[in-house]
Every structure is written in C-alpha cells, then in structure tokens.
C-alpha cells in the first residue's frame, strides 16, 4: 500500500524536556489512524509535527524526518503554507471564525487563489457536503457561524479544512467537546473522508479509536510503544504496556 506519511526517528524537545523519542511510523494512504495514550505522552506533539505546527512553539526542536507523499517536510525550502494546505488540521474545540458560514469555508481557498462567483459556490457546496453539514446550513449560508451548535461548528471547521483540498487531515480530539450524536456524525464523516484522504486523529476515547480507525498507535512517555491494525491492538496487543493501558490497568 502507498504510504501517505513516513515518519523516521522523530525526536522533539521542548527546551530540555524530550517530548518524542525516536518515533517512526508509516501511515498508509486512505486510512484512518488513531493515536492513543495518556495525557502528555506526546501524541499531540506527534500530530503537530506532521504539518510543522510545532514551528510556532517557542523552544521546540525537531529532529528526524517526516515525509508527506515522498517529500521531506523538514528540509530547507519546504513551503510551509503549501504543506498545511495539503495537511489540514481540526482541533479539539470547534473554532470557527466570527464570520458567516460562507466566509468560513471560503477563507482558505481565497487565500490560495482568485475565484469567481461560480467557483466559490461550487467549493462552498462541495466542502459543506463532504463535511455532512450542507443540508443543515444550505438555507442560511450567510448566517454567523457562531450561531451553529457545537457539533455543527465542528463539522463546519472540517468543511473549512476540506475546502483547500488537503490530502491528509489531522484531528486533535475532534469529538471531545461534542455529544454522542454529534460524535457519531463526525465518526461517520471520517469513514466517508477516508475514501479520498488520510486521517490521523488523537483521541482519548478508546471506543472511538476502536470504532473509527484502521490503525492505532499507542504512545507512552514520548515513545511509540505499539503501532498496528486497530483490531490487533484492541484484541491482542503485543506489548504489556499497551495491554495495561487499553484495559485500564495502568497506574
């Protein structure tokens, strides 16, 4: 299978503390990867390395390499803006801009290129449809995004990320602020999205990792302890530490 992302011996320091310890992972194209582990284990740090979001963290030092579609993202001359177009991100708390639904979705595409009215409408509709929220907002595209419910806001943020046509979508606990129904919608959406793109998500919800992902990585104290198919990790983990964590025997 084609690899969407190859991570090789990735090391991250924040000042003097070592947040990631030589992590390597190959992520197949069009798959959903869940990253699990206790708070502070490095999974969000790992996620942020994939589109160089750690560049903006003061004192962060990244060693090792990340390849997206065969191109090293940490080599000199990488266009970080283009990288982040290809590798989009959705955060834990829905964070729509205080603008209309339309402006939220079109914000990214308009930065990248000039678009006429017809193209705007096309991108708007297809992004909202892919994020499974079109039917709920199509009659109020110019209403403020802040007026939507939490679950709708999160799907709007996904639509906003999709509008720039990324190949990879990173999600940092995308459902932790949502109720079970909104969560189910996002999980369903993730299954649709993987037909076209690769999804890497951090989650604290073990059932969600089990339900929604194809591969699971377990991080502990900055180390990738185990990475395998979700079925294997949850049915028969190879590592004792993984077993202890997923069965709640930790600590």
């Amino acid at each position: 299978m084609q690899k969407a992302i190859r991570v090789k011996a990735l090391d991250v320091h924040y000042g003097r503390s070592r947040a990631l310890k030589s992590v390597s992972m190959d992520i197949p194209e069009r798959s959903v990867v869940a990253l699990i582990g206790p708070s502070g284990c490095g999974k969000s740090t790992f996620l942020r390395c994939l589109n160089r979001m750690n560049d903006t963290v003061p004192g962060a030092k990244v060693e090792g390499d990340v390849e997206v579609d065969g191109h090293s993202v940490y080599r000199n001359g990488t266009d970080v803006v283009e990288l982040r177009r290809q590798v989009g991100m959705v955060f834990q708390k829905p964070n729509p801009f205080p603008k209309s639904i339309r402006d939220n979705v079109l914000f990214g595409p308009r930065l990248h290129r000039r678009m006429d009215r017809a193209e705007c409408d096309r991108v708007l509709e297809s992004s909202l449809r892919r994020a499974a929220i079109w039917d709920e907002v199509k009659d109020r595209l110019d209403a403020p995004a802040m007026g939507l419910s939490g679950g709708q806001q999160q799907r709007l943020c996904i639509a906003r990320a999709l509008a720039v046509e990324p190949r990879i979508l990173l999600m940092d606990e995308p459902c932790s602020a949502l109720d079970p129904i909104a969560t189910a919608k996002i999980e369903e959406l993730i299954q649709d999205l993987k037909k076209e793109l690769t999804v890497v998500m951090v989650t604290h919800n073990m059932q969600q990792a089990a339900r929604a992902s194809d591969y699971t990585g377990f991080f502990y104290l900055g180390e990738l302890v185990e990475f395998g198919t979700t079925k294997q990790v949850f049915e028969n983990p190879r590592e004792k530490r993984t077993e202890d964590y997923v069965t709640g025997r930790f600590g």
């Binding site: 073990m206 949850f234 049915e235 028969n236 077993e243 069965t247």
Partner: peptide
C-alpha cells in the same frame, strides 16, 4: 465495560 485485549478474550 466494553472490554478489550485480554479482558475481551
């Protein structure tokens, strides 16, 4: 409890 791993087995 939705057990996993050894517990599930």
């Amino acid at each position: 409890n939705q057990p996993v791993a050894q517990d599930l087995r």
